[in-house]
Amino acid sequence: MNTDIQLDAHGQLRHLLTTEGLPKSLLERILDTAESLVPEVGAPPKKVPLLRGKTVFNLFFENSTRTRTTFELAAKRLSADVINMDVATSSRAKGEDDLDTLFTLQAMGADIFVVRHPENGAAAHFAAHAAPHVAIINAGDGSHAHPTQGLLDVFTIRRHRPDFENLKIAIVGDVAHSRVAHSTIHALRTLGTTDIRVIGPERFLPPAPGALGVTATTDIRAGLADADIVMGLRIQRERIEGDALAGVADYHHDFGLTPANLAHASKTALIMHPGPINRGVEITAEVAYSDQSLILEQVRNGIGIRMAVMAMIAGQTRGGSPDAP
């Protein structure tokens, strides 16, 4: 898939479709911009006029809670007008093509589309046909990519363990079908992490782990050994044909983030999960809400990352500066 369309002629962010291939300098600029937009815990949210007069359409062809809500909050904190499209009740239900939906909303004055779609490559397809002044942000396309989630994951890690080159990171669960895992892995590798392990039953492991830059194992003890960061993933049942899981109890015992399994990781390991979590399947409530868990912090940080991406993109597509009101 050609992702050069993400950048303009000057190498600046034009669309955000994937973390794969993003230059390290640009990725770090996104993270640094987010730092200036994330309020301290307990402080009031920051509202800035960077997107005043612009319109953001949340165009979700799949269900979402965290991503759609945090994009909406992010856009409003940037002073944008926000429209949440209910695709189920739109003209798409009458047979309207996805691109016709795009063209129609463009004519209404859209500046940014945040798109979630069940098909791999859908966001790039929208970007290839968008008007010159319109930007596309991928909020998840099939099992391909979820770039803002990957960015918020590495942003969260950087706030606690900034030495990416020396980290041991374990990702447990349905990696093969997870767009989050793919985006986070690409971002981690760009930032210098070389020890990335993926753990799960054979059918949940990527078919070519070496090409992805990870090591794969079905042995959770070996995979978690001395890990600094442990990320759990839910099983992507909607992307798996047939029975996704033979036995929940066995899976939870063998691959769940439980105190017993996490005993193999570093004693100071931090726990992450993109959500939604399934208690008693890939994680226990005890672990999810422990002192070592960063799961709720990931949600908070998602607002700042999405603000940063939209501010930077708006600065490029309209010729303004994302650093100036």
Rank of each mutant, 00 (worst) to 15 (best):
Asp111Ala: 08
Ala93Ile: 06
Pro118Gly: 14
Leu105Ser: 01
Ala139His: 02
Phe103Val: 03
Asp97Thr: 05
Ala145Val: 03
Thr101Gly: 09
Pro132Ala: 15
Ala124Trp: 00
Ala139Pro: 06
Pro132Ser: 08
Asp97Arg: 13
Asp141His: 14
Gln106Ile: 03
His144Asn: 14
Phe126Met: 13
Ala127Ser: 05
Ala122Ser: 14
Val114Leu: 04
Val134Ile: 11
Asn120His: 10
His129Asp: 04
Gln106Leu: 00
Glu119Phe: 02
Thr101Val: 14
Asn120Ala: 12
Ala135Glu: 01
Leu105Tyr: 12
Lys94Gln: 11
Gly140Ile: 01
Leu105Val: 07
Thr101Cys: 10
Gly121Trp: 09
Phe126Trp: 12
His144Thr: 00
Phe126Glu: 12
Ala139Leu: 04
Leu105Pro: 00
Asp111Ser: 14
Arg92Lys: 15
Ile112Cys: 10
Ala110His: 01
Leu105Ile: 06
Ala122Glu: 06
Pro118Val: 13
Leu99Ile: 15
Ile136Phe: 05
Ser143Arg: 15
Lys94Cys: 07
His133Gly: 06
Gly142Phe: 05
His146Asn: 11
Asn138Tyr: 08
Asp141Asn: 13
Ala93Phe: 04
Thr104Leu: 04
Ala110Ile: 09
Asp97Ser: 13
Phe113Trp: 03
Arg116Ala: 07
Asp111Trp: 02
Ala139Arg: 11
Gly95Leu: 11
Ala135Leu: 09
Gly109Phe: 03
Glu96Ile: 10
Ala131His: 11
His129Gly: 03
Gly140Ser: 09
Ser143Tyr: 00
Gly142Ala: 04
Lys94Arg: 15
Ala122Ile: 08
Asn120Thr: 05
